[in-house]
Every structure is written in C-alpha cells, then in structure tokens.
Design a protein around this nucleic acid. Sequence first.
DNA 1: TTCAACAAATGGTACGAACCAATATGCAAA
DNA 2: TTTGCATATTGGTTCGTACCATTTGTTGAA
Lengths: 240, 240
Amino acid sequence: MAELAYHRVYSQLTAQIKAGQYPDYRLPDERSLTDQFGVSRSTIKRALGILVSRGIVFQKQGAGTFVNPLYFKSKPLFNYTGDNIGITDSLVQDGQQQSIQVLHFHVQKAKDEIAQSLFLQPNDFVYRIERLRLVDGQPFMIEIGYLPIRLVPDLNEEVIQDSLYTYLEKEQHLQVTKSFLNISTEPSTASDQKLLQLKPNEPVGVMEGIFFTDSGTPIEFSRMRIHYKYMQYNSFVSLS
Amino acid sequence: MAELAYHRVYSQLTAQIKAGQYPDYRLPDERSLTDQFGVSRSTIKRALGILVSRGIVFQKQGAGTFVNPLYFKSKPLFNYTGDNIGITDSLVQDGQQQSIQVLHFHVQKAKDEIAQSLFLQPNDFVYRIERLRLVDGQPFMIEIGYLPIRLVPDLNEEVIQDSLYTYLEKEQHLQVTKSFLNISTEPSTASDQKLLQLKPNEPVGVMEGIFFTDSGTPIEFSRMRIHYKYMQYNSFVSLS
DNA sequence: TTCAACAAATGGTACGAACCAATATGCAAA
DNA sequence: TTTGCATATTGGTTCGTACCATTTGTTGAA
C-alpha cells in the first residue's frame, strides 16, 4: 500500500524538524514546499494542519510557519507515535519493566453507568477485570476495566496477564484509537494504600476513560487509580 | 465581518445536533449537505473535520457520518466555547460567583525554569502574581503566575484583581489561544490546607501550564494548586 | 434459501485555480 | 534618520473536479 501523500509530507517534515533542519525555527513557505515535495498546496496545507494540531508548529498569516521550540524540549510524554492509545504507554517511560497482577476476573451484568457508557442493554454481560500494574516491581496503578463480552468472546485469565490492547490488535484486529478521559484526584483509601504502598496522606490520581475502536464502538470503560508520583498528564490545547 | 462559510456550517450542524435533530444519530451524506448549505463539498468536509476532532461526530468510509452519543452526556467542564483559554472558564460552572484574593504581587528576575519556559534571558524580569481564587466564597485554587514584564509593562495590583486574560484581550489586544498543560497531583502542604480549607489527608491537583498568545509568544507560566474536589479535566483523544 | 457477484452509496485523497487578509519589506518623502 | 506608503510575501478561504476505497444493499444463480 503506497503511503498517502499528505502523510509522507507530514512524516518527512516532522523528521526534518527533529533533525534540527530549521535552526531558525522557520519553515519554507507553503508554495515552496509544494515544489519541494511535488504535491499540491492543498496537500501541503493538510500536512501542516496536522503539525499545527499537535502543537509542533504554528502558523501566522502573512508571516510564515514556525517550529514551536518548546515542543521538542518538553519531555515527550505525550508523543503518541504508536498505533494504540493504552494509558500505560503515556505514563510509563521507555525501558522500564512493566508487569501485571490480576486481582479479580469475572463476568457480570453491566450496571447502569457502565452499560450507558458502553452502549449496552441493561442485561448485557461484561467482563470485569481488576488488575494491579507495576513498573520495575513498584505498583503504580489499580485498574478496573469493563469490556462487553459480545465484542471479545474469548478472554481468559491468561490473556489479561498482558496488555489488553496489544491482544485486541494482534488477535482480534481491533484498533483502539479514540478515548474520552476524565481526570481527577482523591485521597487514597485503605485499599489504595495497601496495594500502591501509599502513606495515609498520599493521594491517588483518578482517570476514568471510555475507549473506542476505529469504527466508533466503545470497547472498554476503565477506572484507574494511580499512585500520585506516577500521575502525569500532558496536553496541548489550541483554540480556533 | 461576514462569518466564514465553514464556520457557519459547523455552528449550524452543532446546533442541530444539540437540538436533537438527528435522533437516529446519523447525519446526511456530504453531498446532500453540500446542497443544503449551498457550499462546496470541501467546505462541508472542513466543517465536519472540526466536529470529528472535537469528538462530536465520527465518520466511517462507505457508511456515513454519525453523532457520538456520549458527547453531550458528559459534563461540559472543559468546553472551550469562548475566545480565551483562561483556566477558570473551564473549571467553574456558569452562574457561580468568582472572586479573587491577591496574596502577593511583585517583580523579580526570572529563575531558570521560568525563564526557559517563557523564552527569556536569565536577567529578564517577570511579575510574580500569587492569587487565591474562590467560587461562591469557597477557595478552590492557589495560582502562581509569572508574566514577562516586557510584554505587559503596566500591570498593577488593581488589574490583577480581575481576570488577567480579559484584561489582556480588552486592553492589550492579546488573545491567549494556546497552552501546554501538565496535570498531576500531590499531598497538600500546610499552606494548601490553610488556604484551601483542606484536611491533612486531602490532596491538591497540580496544573502547570505555559500559555501563548495568538502569535506563539509565551505570555504566562502558571502553577496552580487546586482543591481536589474542583479538579476535573476532560479530554478527547483521537489518534490517526 | 443461501451465497456470491455486482452496483450504489458514502467518505477519502489529491489536484489546481482564484481570490482574500495579514504581515513584512523596501523605498521615497519628510 | 525616521516615518509612511506601496508592494511583495505568505498563510487563509472557497470552489470545483476527478478518482479511489470501503461499506451496504441488491440481484440472480446455485
């Protein structure tokens, strides 16, 4: 499958920027890029639009297109370069050893909030998966996930020892590419303190998320309680 | 100034969706919308692209364009509908009474992290503004902001009693439309507990942000400590 | 009745043209 | 030297065309 034109331009520009090809933080104008890449200006605009939306560059009418110098200085916690959107990828640094302890695993009827979030009928069944996640042997997150049994009929205790999304992608050919997240914080409960090795005054970060496949089907509702030292979320917001 | 075509389409579609005009969660196909709105398909695609990027609808090749039913159910804490990006706008609900107490206000040399974040030379001066923000009389956030003195030469104690960004927009014609945010959580300090009326085991949410004007100039570095009950952040993430 | 092949519907990609709007530049006048 | 204006530069908007890719519906043969 030939790579799409706008994606090729986007990739190459990103690579050029990372390689420091624009030390003056200024990109060539769009019409020159049209010549350089041999595509239309519309395609250039599309590629630049992605760079803008990710906060890598910004544009100013009449002036030009400029690299956001902070982007590559800040830690790349929010660099979604992979295919999937698993939370751990953004919380955990490269090279650290992740592991998973399954705390509970069973099937139940979806209760109200879960059913609503996952678009289920009141009597549909879901897996309830409670796991403790560790990095380099240190527990950092309690994760309770709910998945419709209909969408993933053959889950078992062995599968959920590893990354769920890797399994979904590899075995079920489901790509998880969208999510709603709600982030908040709470004092830790006794159970949190025990599992995450927290002192009584130390809090947890709480993330609730609904995750969707490519096609817009909600596939997981997840509630995560995160050791506060590991709770980090970066985001770039741009209006207009 | 006449409204732009793609924006008109976006607004009207959003309004229609909110009004429940598509009970089957399905929008007309793009070519029909072209006729309905009297604009080209490119313009329709642009408007729909915004709806997609905000998670309001999703599209599927060969099938159609569908409303995301979860979008309007979730609490709109983070719905940037105004011109500016001030934090209070997104944390505080409509109709609640906001007020501000100025705790400290002075000018100092920018220290390392601040200087780097705001793109300053080591000897440049910044305002340091420490404020306590309340909603309906209840303190909910301690905010320490740093602004380059060069960009806003005439700040004074009176101005910072009110919203800084409103002032910047009205008086300085600076629009703040972009930000990098980093969100985390910590146990509350003694000072937090006193100012925010927290119990010792209750935590604070921590938001650090760099805010940019339209033109990409960093204008504020802000460190916010938020009462945990007010700490709520919603986000929609979509890959690809 | 079932299923496979075909057709229609629908979003995706790409091109190119024309013109507008904001900013930067250079030159001439003060 | 400084200021102000004309011009060039550069991104923004909109239109329209052509064709591709995926999904869904239809139809006819087995």
